[in-house]
């Protein structure tokens, strides 16, 4: 496809800890809506973002039951972005650092997420028009 771009994002933050994760998801959302191919290399705590066992909950302080609360689960964000990429003619390749996964015991990722190594980050970046690293602080 003429003008099709490939972008890679390297992210590090775990779910629910930082605004950086949300901003990364917003950037990915824009890119996949354009039909770009997007790679994500999830490093350290970011490997928990697509963890399949995340569960929504009610929130008594907000006074809402679970369904009404519609608590955001980052695994749903990842799934929505993978779907959006396919719908728009691109692909979201989400690579979880395997050793980071093992350390954290979060091997059960949602469908579409694969396990990788630092070599994958290098290959993905080499094959991309650009790479943005969003490091943790």
């Amino acid at each position: 496809m003429a003008g099709k771009k490939t972008l890679t994002f390297a992210i590090m933050d775990p779910p629910y800890e930082s605004g950086r994760s949300t901003t990364a998801f917003r950037l990915i959302d824009i890119a996949v809506k354009r039909g770009y191919d997007v790679n994500v290399f999830a490093y350290e705590g970011a490997v928990c973002l697509p963890f399949a066992k995340q569960q929504a909950h009610p929130n008594a302080v907000h006074g809402r039951e679970a369904e009404e609360e519609n608590h955001p689960l980052p695994k749903d964000w990842v799934a929505a972005l993978i779907k959006s990429a396919a719908t728009n003619g691109g692909k979201l390749d989400w690579v979880n650092c395997g050793l980071c996964v093992d350390e954290r015991g979060v091997a059960e990722a949602i469908e579409g997420v694969r396990r990788g190594t630092p070599a994958d980050l290098w290959k993905l970046a080499e094959g991309s028009d650009n790479t943005l690293v969003i490091g943790t602080r």
Binding site: G19, S21, T22, A60, P74
Partner: peptide
């Protein structure tokens, strides 16, 4: 401030304060 608030639907310390007050 604004650390994970979009995912949490609140600030977790303000939330914690409300919960402990309750």
């Amino acid at each position: 401030a604004y650390r994970g608030t979009l995912e949490e639907q609140d600030d977790t310390i303000i939330w914690l304060t409300q919960a402990m007050k309750g």
